[in-house]
Amino acid sequence: MTNGVIHWFRYASPQSFYPLAGRMIPWFATLAALLTAAGLWIGFFVAPTDAQQGESYRIIFVHVPASWMSMFLYVVMAGWAGLGLAFNTRLSAMMAHAIAPTGAMFAFLSLWTGALWGRPTWGTYWVWDARLTSELVLLFLYLGYMALHAAIDDPRRGDRAAAVLALVGVINVPIIYFSVQWWNTLHQGASVSLTRAPSMAATMLTGMLVMALAFWMYSIAAALARVRAIMLEREAHMQWTHELPEAAK
């Protein structure tokens, strides 16, 4: 640190990012726990019963945050993968791999909670409409990314192949987002938009946003924990991992 400028590239190598990530995890995990507690309290005890859907609408407090995270994490994953492809940095590809399983989990949860919400609201767990189908495609993109990387023996070649898949798949994210406008679907339109007032009660919206923030913090903590494990796995032959205090004994 000189002249008050943070040298971000210093953290671009696994060996200097590893301890930094380790120090950040407890903070993000604690924030995630506190926000989850607050979000669940608002969601179950403060937010009123919905006039049309009764209590079934409370699924929104996991469904919308999980769906947002599944899309957002995909874009972040593809961004890291693209950086790795462009600059061939070790850390970028590792970050992309660290995000994929958490993103896949949120895509699955989006579909699962959506099915459980669809049954009482629409009378069906599943329908092949644009929103649901494109979200299912997102889950398959995550799984395809992980499977492709796992199928290639040389990790650096695997990184590049998987990065291309991730980048091509980005096209699916705006398709999911705008599907409710572009096609006639069973799924309702966006509840929250930057251009107009939200179409829901203030406490419902607050609960949803707090839960979204909680999932966000959780995702960062999980991705950092996973990238640390990936660094150890991939660089187990390197001197810096041998010098770690946790590698003693």
């Binding site: 009764g54 079934s56 469904h63 999980a66 999980a222």
Partner: peptide
């Protein structure tokens, strides 16, 4: 309000997935 299966089915599976991921990590 009669929607227990759907609401708890959503929240419990979400909690189980997150707990599972922490154990795996």
């Amino acid at each position: 309000g009669g929607y227990g299966f759907y609401v708890w089915g959503s929240f419990l599976v979400t909690a189980a997935c997150i707990a599972g991921e922490v154990v795996f990590l």
